[in-house]
Amino acid sequence: MPSSILLLNGPNLNMLGLRQPEIYGRDTLADVEAMCIEAGKQLGLTVEARQSNYEGELVTWIQQARDVFDGIVINPGAYSHTSIAILDALNAFEGKVVEVHISDIHAREEFRHHSYVSHRADHVIVGQGIKGYTMALDELANRLLA
């Protein structure tokens, strides 16, 4: 049975392709999700994609993932820098976690340099554009299927 991965995207990622394309590119969230589902199949993973602009909804999904998913790929967006609640939810998740950021958060405004989620993540990928998502899936496949 394939390992199951929850792909979570946080606030404003539903605006991919429209919001600051010079930073985030022109691909849409639908493009990213389709790419990840296909990449997951190639890696022997099933991928379920979700996005929310609401912190509490992301926390609930992470809590519900405990007995359902083997791993989480998360781009928490701006919540990376503010949400201890998401960190606490991830700390209760027993599977593997990979954090993804499309842009290089360390080369941007200083307030973006710190991520609470990174404290829990098993691996962090920044600044690789949307390719970072498939890199995250590859990392999870290596960790889960090895």
Rank of each mutant, 00 (worst) to 15 (best):
T28M: 03
A65R: 10
N14F: 12
V47Y: 08
N9L: 09
N142L: 11
I62C: 01
H119P: 00
S118K: 11
N91H: 13
A65N: 04
L7I: 06
L140H: 09
G95Q: 08
L90G: 09
G71W: 08
V98S: 11
A85N: 03
R143G: 00
G56W: 01
E94Q: 12
A85K: 01
E48D: 14
V68T: 15
F69S: 07
P2E: 13
P76S: 14
M15P: 06
H123I: 13
R19G: 13
N12T: 07
F69H: 12
A85E: 00
G40I: 05
S103K: 02
N9C: 12
Q128P: 00
P21S: 10
G132Q: 09
F111I: 01
A89N: 08
N75Y: 05
V100C: 05
L29S: 03
E139K: 14
L144Y: 06
N142K: 14
D88Q: 11
L43P: 01
E57P: 02
K131P: 00
L45I: 11
I37Q: 13
I84R: 04
P21M: 06
A39C: 10
Y24G: 04
V126I: 13
H81V: 04
V124D: 14
G129C: 03
R108H: 06
F111R: 11
L137F: 08
E48L: 15
V59E: 02
G40V: 10
I74L: 12
T46W: 06
W61F: 06
G71L: 10
A39R: 14
N142F: 05
N75V: 08
N12S: 12
Q42H: 14
D104P: 03
I72P: 09
E22R: 04
L140P: 04
E38G: 00
V73R: 05
D70K: 05
G132H: 04
K96M: 14
E55V: 02
Q42A: 15
L144S: 02
L43M: 09
G129R: 03
V73W: 08
L87Y: 12
S83T: 02
E99D: 13
G95Y: 09
M15Y: 07
A107S: 07
H123L: 14
Y79E: 00
A49Y: 05
M35I: 09
Q63M: 11
G77Q: 09
E48S: 11
T60Q: 13
F93H: 10
V73N: 05
A78S: 14
N12R: 09
E99K: 05
E55A: 02
R19M: 11
Y24C: 07
V98T: 13
R66V: 02
N75R: 07
D104K: 08
T28E: 06
P11C: 07
E38M: 15
S80E: 10
E33H: 14
Q51E: 09
G10R: 03
Y54Q: 09
R112W: 12
Y54N: 08
L8H: 07
T82Q: 01
G132V: 01
H101V: 11
D138T: 14
P76Y: 04
H101D: 11
